[in-house]
Measured scan of single mutants.
Amino acid sequence: QAPETKIVDKSRVACDGGEGALGHPRVWLQIPEDTGWVECPYCDCKYVLKGSKADAL
């Protein structure tokens, strides 16, 4: 199944896999201003900063 994409309001987000005990260790991710998105290294969930150029795609 394809990784999930989430639109977020802040450039710093936490990801834990979203499945409680079945998820992964919580990691904090920083969305770079130049790209407007970041992917979780564990679950490949893509976080897109709302209003960024990546959000316009």
Rank of each mutant, 00 (worst) to 15 (best):
Y47G: 11
P41C: 08
A14C: 13
I31Y: 02
V13H: 01
Q1A: 11
S11D: 07
W28Y: 09
T5N: 06
S11H: 08
T35E: 07
P32H: 09
S52D: 08
R12P: 15
E33P: 11
A14S: 09
V13I: 12
D55L: 01
V8L: 03
L57H: 10
D44Q: 15
P32N: 07
P41Q: 04
E33Y: 10
C15D: 00
A54Q: 06
D16H: 07
C43S: 01
K6C: 10
L57N: 12
Y47P: 14
E19K: 13
A56Q: 13
G36N: 03
H24A: 05
I31T: 02
H24R: 05
S52F: 03
E19V: 11
H24D: 04
D16I: 10
T35H: 07
A54N: 05
G36Y: 03
G23F: 08
V13L: 07
W37Y: 12
K53Y: 08
Q1I: 12
G23Y: 09
T35A: 06
K46Y: 07
W28E: 00
A2K: 13
D9E: 12
K53C: 12
A2F: 13
A56I: 14
H24T: 03
D9T: 14
T5W: 15
P25V: 11
W28F: 06
A56W: 14
G51W: 03
P3R: 14
L22I: 04
K50P: 08
L22N: 11
T35C: 06
V8D: 02
A21M: 11
A14Q: 07
E39R: 15
L57Q: 12
R12Y: 12
D34P: 04
C43G: 00
T5I: 14
W37H: 01
C43V: 01
D44I: 11
V8I: 06
A56L: 13
D9A: 10
Y42E: 10
P41F: 06
C40D: 08
D55C: 09
A2D: 10
A54S: 06
G36M: 03
D9Q: 09
V27D: 00
V38H: 02
R12T: 13
L29G: 01
L22D: 08
K6N: 08
S52K: 02
E33G: 07
I7M: 08
S11V: 11
A56F: 13
V38Q: 01
L57A: 14
C45N: 15
C40P: 06
Q1C: 15
A2Y: 13
A56M: 13
L22H: 09
T35P: 10
D34H: 08
T5S: 08
P3E: 09
I31C: 07
W28N: 00
R12V: 13
Q30S: 11
C45Q: 15
Y42A: 10
E4C: 15
C43K: 00
Y47L: 09
P41E: 02
G20M: 04
I31N: 01
L22P: 06
K50W: 04
K50G: 08
H24M: 03
E4F: 15
G18F: 07
D16Y: 12
P3M: 14
E39C: 07
V8S: 06
C43L: 00
K46M: 06
D16A: 09
G20I: 03
G20F: 07
Q30G: 02
V38I: 12
L29C: 06
V27Y: 03
C15S: 00
E39F: 14
D16K: 08
P25T: 10
I31Q: 01
R26F: 05
V27A: 03
C15I: 00
C43M: 01
D44V: 12
G23I: 10
A2I: 11
S52N: 02
K53T: 09
Q1W: 14
C43F: 00
A56G: 10
A54C: 14
G18I: 05
V38L: 04
K53P: 12
A2H: 14
P25C: 08
V38T: 07
K46F: 07
A54W: 00
P32K: 05
V27Q: 01
E4L: 15
K10G: 08
A56R: 12
D44R: 15
E4M: 15
I31A: 01
K53R: 09
V38G: 01
G20L: 05
V27L: 06
S11Y: 10
Q1R: 14
W37I: 07
L49V: 09
E19D: 10
W28P: 00
G17P: 04
L57C: 14
E39K: 15
D55K: 00
L57E: 13
L22T: 10
H24W: 04
D55Q: 01
G17C: 06
P25A: 09
S11G: 06
K10D: 10
W28R: 00
T5L: 11
L49E: 14
I7Y: 12
G23K: 14
C40G: 07
G36A: 03
P32D: 11
H24P: 02
W37V: 06
R12H: 07
S52H: 04
V13R: 01
C45A: 15
Q1N: 12
C15W: 00
E4T: 15
L49Q: 10
H24V: 04
V13C: 09
D9M: 12
P41W: 06
A54I: 07
Q1K: 13
Q30R: 10
C40W: 09
A2T: 11
L49C: 14
Y47F: 15
C45I: 15
V13F: 11
D55F: 00
E39W: 14
Y47V: 02
C43W: 04
A2S: 12
A14I: 09
K6M: 12
L49W: 02
G36D: 04
E33L: 13
D44A: 15
G18T: 05
K50Q: 09
G20C: 05
T35G: 03
L29R: 02
K50H: 08
A54G: 07
Q30T: 13
W28H: 00
D44H: 15
P32C: 09
A56S: 11
A2N: 12
C45T: 15
P32V: 04
S11C: 09
K46C: 13
V13Y: 04
L57D: 10
P41D: 01
R26E: 01
D16P: 05
D55M: 00
K10P: 02
D44Y: 15
